[in-house]
Design a binder for these strands. Structure first.
Length: 858
RNA sequence: GGGCGGUUAGCUCAGUGGGAGAGCGCUUCCUUGACACGGAAGAGGUCAUAAGUUCAAUCCUUAUACCGCCCACCA
């Protein structure tokens, strides 16, 4: 109900307004196929919090949402769906397939937007974009063409990562390295013409032997010096001879110190091959099957790579060429998306040249134009950019931005923004229009890399682009710092001349209670939608924010967190009910009772509110969401409810309470609103307020809250006295309503006396002993209690104080300390000692009086 | 192999160069006129280990152990 009202009234929407400071956040576009998970809680909640906060501050704040076409993920969904109908991609044909993907995206995609609404996220939906829409697609083509013409995009035959399951290349950033148990096979390659001699190599991938073109050893490895230059026969077929070469890259200490060189199927071997001018025959096709298309593979033709491995190992064993098999644990490359084992293949693909793009992105971070929180994220960012390699951007799938590339009959690429332009170029440069478009599409991250300016209308010169670029902050998970963040910075600098955002905030990863990753297969995944249903969206948001710390890289989450937050909200609700149930009406929220009429408790809660506003504001400005949440939790529950609300039940405090409650609670709701939008709106609307919605209410200003430090300190003294007295009451075993007589040694004034009596369920009896301040009097309030209880209590106190006094005396007697420590520290320690001594004397006197009383009575 | 982070109460985590903190859990009491999704009181810790710097170290430095994350072409 509230959300609908907000959206219908356009509260999330903003127009660029140069009169106000901009505050823009570009939402990391969730996958069109995606569903909300806990990671969205830790990443998107902070974005919503900041946007709401800055809107209340009066800034031109807008949160720009969108969806990502998620090329590989979406294509996989469609393929799976089609498989149920017995259809393959090719049965449909490209055009029909893409049409189906569009239809699917429109019909079933974007479910996550509904979920975001339930969670209270309020981006400017009117500005929602999709990475495949016309404007963004045009931006993609323009960027590709420009980079090509600048020589920053090229086509080349390079080692790429092949995902055989997804039937596409993937970039280095999308490859995971996973430790797995494997086997290290030692294989003997017999010397050509002398089969009694040979060289043994260790390999984990015998199936690639068919593509071996050499054996390499280290140049200084004396074991093999005599063999270098000779040739060996390639097992298991023993039909082809390959040379033994030397290369620095070979580690003589690993395995046998000799390595087989398969340039078409291993990145290191590829480099060795380049250095030695070796041939690079491919023996595996895009289905990860052995192929003899380039070189003879004998009976292994057409076998799947893993079957081929088994068959080749068997053959080696039969022929006595398998010297040794040993278990071996090592890291293998896995496709992030499909989980399939990555096959390094030599293939003709499109690449973005990264070096000249990376340098300015690195510089921007180093000179502080780009800040990264936490600092450790900055290190990661630097390290990656320093070692960056070219980015393979062509993908062999159909769903996505098709490469704006055509080929002339001689296979020369023609790169153009439109087909018309491509025809023109073809006619002009090749004298023909018989050109064929490249079937490949672009890496999803190519279009998301343009997000910060493409969603603002680039390449058009829009008012949004003029006023809102660059944005202020990007919030995202640290796992896509390479895939996304670094690329946005590089492309932003290149095309806009400026970093796309001032701050990057990396949110922690969410793990389960025992630190495991949340996953469906482990069954430990928690669905935020279920939590929202059970405990409320506000509770979910608060629970996750409360655990966030600036420097933390992970948080452990469990459902009980949400339950606690729900309890907190229940507390807010009940506190509100209390106020609404008071006999007097709540006056307007923006004016306080006359200053001189404020009670001690009033002054205390106002001073506390003042500090809370300052702290929360500071925390949100520095992205310390956990700090903000924790501060508010403490204020609402342990200060406002536990102490102030209780104090207002005292009749003497009644005259001013409605005004102060109204004022303080209104402020508290505004402070809490960015974190808990729903309950704060509901409460705010049910109490006196100014305006239509808390969303556009102004952010609390500490300068508008009167502060009386002296009164606040006195109230704190009362709190401390109260705690001591309650402790004694518990020891005596008094029932809550049983009153206790309190001896207060000076006339502390009727307000303090009444407050103390109320909070302790006591009857105050003031005597007027001289020489005490009110604070001292409070410190020595003596409840009437059985002699033995008091005596034990006093003895405990004396013992504790004696320890403290002795500790400090020792410290101050240390000449080194007095001479070398900072003077203010010494002074502080001295005054502490004095305080303890006075307290010690006081308790000792009290004990003496107690025992003498007892004596006279007995 | 390289980089980063962590180790503080049973659990999850704050924090500070000079008197160890919170929430949950636990124990005792309380259906007190907002709230049992609550209130009051309480128990519980040689701040991972070792050395160093310092008048003083849980905090700074170094090393070690264990845990986690990221990066990486030793077959």
């Amino acid at each position: 109900r509230l959300y609908r009202c907000w959206e219908e009234n356009g509260y999330f929407h903003e127009e660029p307004d140069p009169a106000r400071p901009p505050f823009i956040i570009c939402m990391p576009p969730p996958n069109v196929t995606g569903r909300a998970h806990l990671g969205h809680g830790s990443t998107y909640t902070p974005m919503d919090v900041l946007t709401r906060f800055h809107r209340m501050l009066g800034n031109n704040a807008d949160w720009l949402p969108g969806l990502d076409h998620a090329a590989i993920a979406t294509e996989a969904v469609i393929v799976r769906e089609m498989a149920k109908e017995g259809l393959a991609r090719e049965d449909l044909g490209r055009e029909a397939f893409v049409a189906r993907a569009w239809e699917w995206s429109r019909t079933y995609g974007g479910e996550i937007e509904t979920q975001f609404r339930i969670l209270g996220f309020g981006p400017d939906w009117q500005r929602a974009r999709f990475t495949m829409d016309d404007g963004l697609s045009a931006a993609v083509r323009k960027v590709f063409v420009q980079l090509y013409r600048e020589g920053l995009i090229y086509r080349g035959k390079r080692m790429i990562n092949w995902d055989a399951k997804g039937k596409t290349t993937v970039s280095d950033a999308e490859v995971d390295h996973v430790e797995r148990d494997a086997t290290l096979w030692h294989v003997r390659y017999p010397l050509e013409g002398d089969s009694t001699n040979g060289i043994t190599v260790a390999t984990t991938r015998p199936e690639t032997m068919l593509g071996d073109v050499a054996i390499a050893v280290h140049p200084e490895d004396e074991r093999y010096t005599a063999l270098v230059g000779k040739s060996v026969l390639l097992p298991p077929l023993l039909e082809r001879a390959i040379p033994i070469v030397t290369d620095e890259k070979v580690d003589p200490t690993f395995g046998t110190g000799a390595v087989k060189v398969t340039p078409a199927h291993d990145p290191t071997d590829y480099e060795i091959g380049l250095r030695h001018g070796l041939s690079m025959p491919s023996i595996m096709d895009f289905d990860a099957r052995i192929t003899g298309i380039e070189i003879g593979v004998g009976p292994y033709e057409g076998l799947d790579r893993f079957d081929a491995r088994t068959r080749i190992v068997d053959a080696l064993r039969d022929k006595g060429l398998l010297v040794k098999e040993e278990p071996y644990r090592h890291a293998i490359s896995i496709s992030e998306r499909t989980g399939d084992v990555i096959e390094p293949l030599l293939s003709l693909q499109w690449f973005v040249k990264m070096e000249s793009l990376a340098a300015p992105a690195l510089q921007a971070y180093r000179d502080g134009r780009l800040r990264i929180t936490p600092k450790s994220g900055g290190k990661t960012y630097e390290q990656w950019l320093e070692n960056i390699r070219d980015w393979n951007v062509s993908r062999q799938i159909w769903w996505g931005h098709r490469l704006p590339v055509w080929y002339a009959p001689d296979d020369k690429p023609i790169v153009a923004e439109t087909e018309e332009e491509a025809f023109e170029i073809a006619q002009r440069e090749h004298g023909t229009t018989a050109i064929v478009r490249d079937p490949d599409t672009l890496d999803t991250w190519f279009s998301s890399g343009l997000w910060p300016f493409s969603i603002l209308g680039w390449p058009e010169k829009t008012p949004e682009l003029a006023h809102w670029y660059p944005s202020q902050v990007l919030i995202t998970g640290s796992e896509i710092i390479f895939l996304w963040v670094a690329r946005m910075v590089m492309l932003g600098i290149h095309f806009m001349g400026n970093v796309p955002f001032r701050d990057v905030v990396l949110t922690p990863l969410v793990f389960d209670a025992v630190g495991r990753k949340m996953s469906k297969s482990l069954g430990n995944a928690i669905d935020p939608m279920e939590l929202a249903e059970k405990y409320g969206a506000d509770a979910f948001r608060l629970s996750i924010l409360r655990q966030m710390r600036l420097e933390s890289q992970d948080i452990r989450y469990q459902e009980s967190r949400c339950e606690e937050a729900r309890n907190f909200n229940n507390k807010i609700w009940n506190a509100t009910r209390y106020m609404l149930g008071l006999p007097e009406a709540m006056p307007g929220a923006l004016t306080l009772p006359k200053s001189e009429s404020l009670t001690l408790a009033d002054r205390w809660i106002l001073a506390t509110l003042h500090d809370t506003i300052a702290r929360v504001t500071q925390a949100l400005q520095t992205f310390d969401f956990g700090g903000a949440a924790e501060t508010l939790w403490r204020f609402v529950w342990y200060e406002f409810c536990d102490w102030y609300l209780e104090a207002t039940k005292l009749p003497e405090n009644a005259p001013t309470r409605a005004g102060v409650l109204s004022f303080v609670w209104n402020n508290a709701m505004r402070l809490l609103h960015p974190i808990e939008p729903f309950i704060t709106e509901e409460v705010w609307l049910s109490l006196p307020h100014d305006g239509q919605t808390i969303m556009t209410a102004t952010w609390p200003d500490p300068l508008e809250v009167p502060v009386d430090r002296e009164a606040a300190a006195l109230f704190d003294d009362v709190r401390e006295a109260t705690e001591r007295i309650r402790n004694l009451r518990a020891e005596i075993g008094l029932q809550p309503k049983e009153r206790v007589v309190l001896d207060v040694p000076v006339n502390v004034g009727p307000d303090v006396a009444a407050l103390l009596a109320h909070l302790c369920a006591g009857t105050v009896r003031t005597s007027s002993a001289a020489g005490h301040t009110v604070a001292q009097a409070l410190a020595s309030v003596k409840p009437e209690a059985p002699k033995n209880v008091l005596e034990e209590r006093y003895r405990k106190e004396i013992s504790r104080l004696r320890d403290e006094v002795e500790r400090l005396e020792r410290k101050l007697a240390n000449g080194q300390f007095v001479a070398k420590a900072a003077p203010d520290v010494v002074a502080k320690e001295r005054s502490k000692l004095n305080g303890y001594r006075q307290e010690f004397a006081r308790v000792e006197t009290a004990l003496a009086e107690l025992t003498s009383e007892g004596d006279s009575r007995s």
